[in-house]
């Protein structure tokens, strides 16, 4: 293998590592999954999770200046495999946070396209923190005798930002507001 190709592959690996571990060095602004659980009621089950959102100062300023912020909360039921995990169930719920200057309130648009108004940002974030999957999971998804994991991630949608802000959001760590994937064992 030529030395230049070797150096290139090493550099590429280092770059992938750096990008892959981006949330790790994103500071305190990444969202954090506090807990997640599978709640069963009869034959159906739902996923509930508690997320802590932490906005960076620049994200707060942008919000107050009218820039809407969007998160996609992704919930998965995974069956661990030898090489990779297979996804048995997946749901995505979008939350949109926006400031209404006229009313001086924060509006949260829920996955059901319903807007909730809040006088304070913390109240709005508190509202967004509690997530419950509205879609009940069919019993057939979870087969008895198998081991499943619950994976939850809150993904900050940079593509929903205004166009001029998007390149910056990909490069500036203050816009790294997504959480890691959090894995929770399912209690039997």
């Amino acid at each position: 293998m030529p030395s230049c190709a070797k150096r290139f592959s090493q550099s590429l690996f280092a770059l992938c590592l750096a990008l892959g571990s981006a949330p790790a060095w994103a500071g305190n602004y990444a969202a954090r999954i506090e807990y997640a659980e599978l709640q069963t009621e009869g034959d159906t089950a739902t996923i509930a999770s508690q997320i802590e959102y932490r906005l960076s100062p620049v994200a707060k300023v942008a919000l107050d200046k009218g820039v809407p912020l969007t998160w996609d909360v992704v919930m998965e039921l995974r069956e661990p495999g030898w090489l990779w995990d297979s996804v048995a169930y997946r749901s995505k719920q979008r939350y949109r946070l926006q400031f209404h200057a006229l009313l001086n309130q924060y509006a949260v648009q829920t996955p059901q396209n319903h807007s909730e108004m809040f006088l304070t940002l913390s109240a709005a974030l508190h509202f967004m923190a509690s997530v419950r999957d509205q879609q009940p999971i069919p019993a057939a998804v979870l087969q008895p005798g198998r081991y499943y994991q619950l994976a939850v991630r809150s993904e900050f949608n940079r593509e929903a930002l205004p166009i001029p802000l998007r390149p910056v959001a990909y490069l500036d760590h203050r816009w790294f507001l997504s959480s890691h994937w959090s894995l929770w064992p399912i209690q039997k």
Binding site: K65, G66, A101, P164
Partner: peptide, 16 residues
Amino acid sequence: FIRYQEMNFLRDSLKT
């Protein structure tokens, strides 16, 4: 107002 505020906020980003 929101549009103006947003544009004002994005002024540097727009330039960039």
